[in-house]
């Protein structure tokens, strides 16, 4: 059942990304370009996502465990540390340089294009390498 939930959630996520415009690096870049011809659309993507997810969290608040798993798995760390801030800072730079964040980078594989792979494969290398740097900063 967890597998089916994963697939359904993934398809809805990929469809949402498609409708929202997040798969278009030019649009992402126009959102990040406050000093240019600014396109604020993507703020509405986050707004829409937050509204639905906050409501869902309120509804789920009374549940002690998820429907198909033993427990809710949430991140345990509460500290704002160097890896968090340094990593987020790097991510913002890469997002602005390429116009893609991880979700859209995965969905873009649907285009079967060389460009999609030229972002996705280095992203995997970066994700995998992160652990070796994590303990050193």
């Amino acid at each position: 059942m967890q597998l089916i939930v994963g697939l359904v959630s993934g398809v809805i996520f990929g469809l949402g990304l498609s409708i929202s415009g997040m798969l278009n690096p030019v649009k992402v870049s126009a959102f990040l370009d406050l000093a240019g011809a600014w396109d604020p659309s993507l703020a509405f993507v986050m707004g829409g996502g937050l509204i639905v997810n906050i409501l869902a969290m309120l509804v789920l608040k009374k549940r002690t465990k998820p429907f198909f798993a033993e427990r809710f798995s949430l991140p345990q760390s509460k500290v704002i540390d160097r890896p968090l801030l340094g990593g987020a800072a790097l991510f913002g730079i890469g997002w602005a340089l390429g116009g893609l964040c991880p979700g859209p980078a995965i969905a873009s594989l649907a285009y079967l294009s060389g460009d999609a792979l030229m972002f996705f494969i280095p992203m995997l290398v970066g994700l995998y390498s992160a652990r070796f740097i994590f303990s050193k900063i």
């Binding site: 059942m1 967890q2 939930v5 994963g6 359904v8 959630s9 993934g10 809805i12 996520f13 469809l15 949402g16 990304l17 498609s18 409708i19 929202s20 415009g21 997040m22 509405f44 993507v45 986050m46 707004g47 829409g48 996502g49 937050l50 509204i51 639905v52 997810n53 869902a56 969290m57 789920l60 549940r63 465990k65 998820p66 429907f67 198909f68 798993a69 033993e70 427990r71 809710f72 798995s73 979700g103």
Partner: peptide, 17 residues
């Protein structure tokens, strides 16, 4: 699109935690 992204997140959390 954002609403669907939120829905996908809600489904994954509600069912798989």
């Amino acid at each position: 699109g954002g609403g669907l992204i939120g829905l996908a997140a809600a489904i994954l959390y509600a069912f798989n935690g």
